[in-house]
Design a protein around this nucleic acid. Structure first.
Lengths: 233, 233
DNA sequence: TAGTGTGAATTTCTTCACAGCG
DNA sequence: CGCTGTGAAGAAATTCACACTA
C-alpha cells in the first residue's frame, strides 16, 4: 500500500487526523487504536486504517498506533515539517481576519506578504507585515519565493489576482472569494465559497420544512425531500 | 430522473451553477448550453447535464437552457426563494467578518443574532445587531426561529456552541473553527477548517518540491509524489 | 443539426470481512 | 485475544456514448 498513489479524499482527511492526534498527545494518551480515533473524529475505523496505511505500516497489531510517531508521520506527509510563507491578497474584513488568524502560524504557515488595491490601507501594517499595492503581487511573491496564496478579494478581482499570483510562481491557491476559479495546468486551487456553503445548508433546511409542512406540498416533492434527508441524518 | 434522490455531490455544485447563471444573465446571455456552462464553471458538460436533470427536464434539445428559467429553478431548489435568519457565534475577527459579509445578504441570508463570551464586546452593535452573551444562545435562537448557525469561536468552545444552537432548534450549522464536529442525529454540520485547507495545499507543495529536488530523495517517495501530482495537474 | 437526457461503463471511494501478527 | 493491514465487495460519483427531439 505504501507505494500507492494517495487518494485525494485521504489527503483531505489527513489534517483531521493530525488535529486529533495532537489533542490526544496533549491529553497524555500515548497509544490510540483506530476505534479510539474513530470515536474522536467521527470517521469510520476501517476508513482510518486504510487512510493511514497509505503512509506506511505504523500500527502495532493487537495494540494500535503510537500517537507521537503517527503524529510526526502525518505532519511530515502534509509538509508541515517546514515553514511555509504565504501571500494574502485582499485585506478588508475577511482578508484581515485571515492575515491574523492564529491557527495558521500554529501549523507553520506564515503570512509574509499582504496586498490590496485600496489606497487608504496600502502602506499600513498588519501584524508587522506591510500592505502592498496590488500591482506588485508578481514581483514580491517571486522575490520572497512564496508558493501558497490566499485570495480574499471581491469576486470581480479574483481571476486577475490568481493570474498575478501564478505569474509570480505561486502554485497552490486558497480562493475564498464567492466565485469558482478553474485550476490552470500545474496549479492547485481550492475554492472555498462560504456563501455556497450556506446555500447547501439552506437546501437542507428547505427539504426539512417541506416535510414538516402538513398542507401536503406536492407528494412527489415530499418523497424526494424525505429520501434526501435519509441520506444525511 | 426528476423523482430521484439528489446526490449530495450534486447539491454541492448547485451554488456554482446558480452563481454562473446569475453572471450570464447579468451579461445578457439568454440561453446557455451545457458546454457554455462547462467553459464558465470548469465542470464537465455531461456532469452538468446530469446534475440539472435531477431538477427536471428544463433544457431544449438542440438549443440549451433558458438562463432565466434555470436560474429560478436552481435558486428555488436551494431554498433561496425565502430569506433565512442566521445566528453567528463568536464575534472576534473571523466572526465579525462573517457577520458583515456582503455575499450573505445577497443570497438571502440575514444575520439576525450574534453571540460572544467576551464581556468587552457584549452589548455593542454590529451592523445594527446587538452582540449577546453566550448563555443566551438557545433562548434567542428559539425565539427568533433561527434554523442556521455559524460557529466562529475558538476551537475549545465549538462543541458547546453546537450543543447550545441545537438546543435552540438550529438544524444546519457551518462550523469554521479548526476542529471537526460530528453531526448529531438530525443535524447537518459542514466543517470548514481553513487551516486544514492550507495543509492540503502544503501537501501539494511538498510533493512538488520532492520532484524538483534533484539530489534524488528516496526514489519510492518520488514515484509516489509524481503519481499524486498526475492526479491533480 | 446541435444539444439534451439518460442507460451503461468506468472510475473512485467506502465498507466489509478476515488473515496474520504482536 | 485484539487490532492492524488489505483483498474483495459494495456504493457513489463521474464519464461515455448515443437515442431522441426541437
Amino acid at each position: 500500500m505504501k507505494g500507492q498513489r494517495i487518494p485525494s479524499a485521504t489527503v483531505a482527511r489527513l489534517p483531521i487526523y493530525r488535529q486529533c492526534l495532537q489533542s490526544l498527545l496533549n491529553r497524555g494518551e500515548a497509544v490510540a487504536s483506530s476505534h479510539r480515533l474513530a470515536a474522536a473524529t467521527g470517521i469510520e475505523a476501517p476508513q482510518i486504517r486504510r487512510d493511514l496505511s497509505y503512509l506506511g505500516a505504523f500500527g502495532t497489531r493487537g495494540v494500535g498506533y503510537e500517537v507521537r510517531d503517527l503524529l510526526r508521520e502525518v505532519s511530515h506527509s502534509l509538509g508541515l515539517s517546514r515553514s511555509w510563507p504565504v501571500a494574502v491578497v485582499g485585506c478588508r474584513k475577511l482578508g484581515a481576519a485571515l492575515a491574523t488568524y492564529e491557527a495558521f502560524p500554529k501549523r507553520n504557515f506564515h503570512v509574509s506578504a499582504i496586498f490590496d488595491c485600496d489606497l487608504s490601507i496600502i502602506g499600513t501594517s498588519v501584524e508587522g507585515v506591510e500592505v502592498m499595492p496590488f500591482d506588485r503581487i508578481a514581483d514580491v511573491v517571486r522575490e520572497k519565493e512564496i508558493g501558497i496564496g490566499i485570495v480574499a478579494t471581491d469576486p470581480e478581482w479574483a481571476p486577475l489576482t490568481v493570474r498575478q499570483l501564478v505569474e509570480g510562481g505561486v502554485t497552490s491557491i486558497l480562493n475564498l472569494s464567492p466565485v469558482t476559479i478553474a485550476s490552470p495546468a500545474g496549479i492547485v486551487i481550492r475554492n472555498i465559497d462560504l456563501a455556497a456553503e450556506m446555500q447547501i445548508l439552506s437546501f437542507n433546511e428547505s427539504m426539512k420544512r417541506m416535510i414538516e409542512e402538513y398542507p401536503a406540498v406536492q407528494p412527489s416533492a415530499k418523497v424526494r425531500a424525505e429520501s434526501w434527508l435519509k441520506g444525511w441524518l
